[in-house]
Simulated scan of single mutants.
Amino acid sequence: MTEQLLSASVASPPPVLDSIINTLAEQGWVIDRSLFTPQDIALLRDECVQHWRQGEFHEAAIGQASEQRRLSEIRSDSVLWLDEDNAPPAVAAYFAKLEQIRQAVNQSLFMGLVELESHFAVFPTGAFYKNHLDRFRHDDARTLSAVLYLNQDWPDDAGGEMRLYLDPECQHHLDVAPEAGTLVLFLSDRFWHEVLPARQPRLSITGWFRRHTGNVPW
């Protein structure tokens, strides 16, 4: 029954995609709270917690390839990369909905997105991620970032907001609470952002839509 409900939830593109695409085209970022159902989020949260309890996460690093390193003064979360080809039902439903976004973006905005890479992210109490862009120094394939939050009934005083800077000088920002079902999309090379310290464990899925480039990752 669960698999049937998940299949039904991603069977056809929802009308909300038009609103997402229009807003993304206008301002380069968009927040949606309707694409993922409470059931979708509950199943994803259960999946994330199960893998965390099994010790499958690893401390997140910064950089790429030979430059990759762990710098706890910059980020202190842990991650688990997701395999779309061997995904359990809840994660498969996530990939299916993000695929709808990829196709809609390509059709309307001609971004040339070809794939999605994603991981679960857990921010233990006190964890943070300093201000950064979602682009590697020598690889500009990441084009559109997608962050989906899995935290039910997140208290107002629990911290953990994503601070999205709306200008290159980082003078103006929007704080997004990591409430369950909130999806944030933004152009990876344009918007600096950070995760403020969380006062309780914080769960999410972070993804990046990639395009083909001629650059090499080293």
Rank of each mutant, 00 (worst) to 15 (best):
L113V: 10
A104D: 08
D46P: 05
F110N: 06
I74E: 10
H58T: 13
I62M: 12
I101N: 07
H212N: 13
V122A: 09
G28N: 06
Q152R: 13
A61T: 12
S7P: 11
L82F: 06
F128W: 10
D134C: 02
M1C: 11
G181L: 02
N131I: 15
Y129L: 09
I101R: 06
E99W: 06
L82P: 04
T37P: 05
M111N: 04
A90E: 06
H173L: 08
Q100L: 14
P168A: 09
F186C: 08
Q27C: 09
T37I: 01
Q50H: 15
V184H: 04
E99M: 07
G55E: 04
D139A: 05
D46S: 13
R75P: 00
I74G: 04
D134L: 02
A96K: 11
F123W: 11
S34N: 13
R163Y: 03
Q54C: 07
A87T: 10
A25N: 11
F136P: 02
D189P: 00
Q107W: 06
L17Y: 02
L5H: 11
T2S: 10
A127L: 03
L174F: 08
S66H: 15
A25P: 01
A65N: 15
L144K: 00
G63T: 00
P217M: 01
S78G: 08
F209N: 06
A96T: 01
M1D: 13
L43S: 03
K97L: 11
T37S: 15
S145L: 02
A90V: 08
L109S: 08
S9Y: 00
V114W: 08
Q27S: 10
A141K: 11
F57S: 00
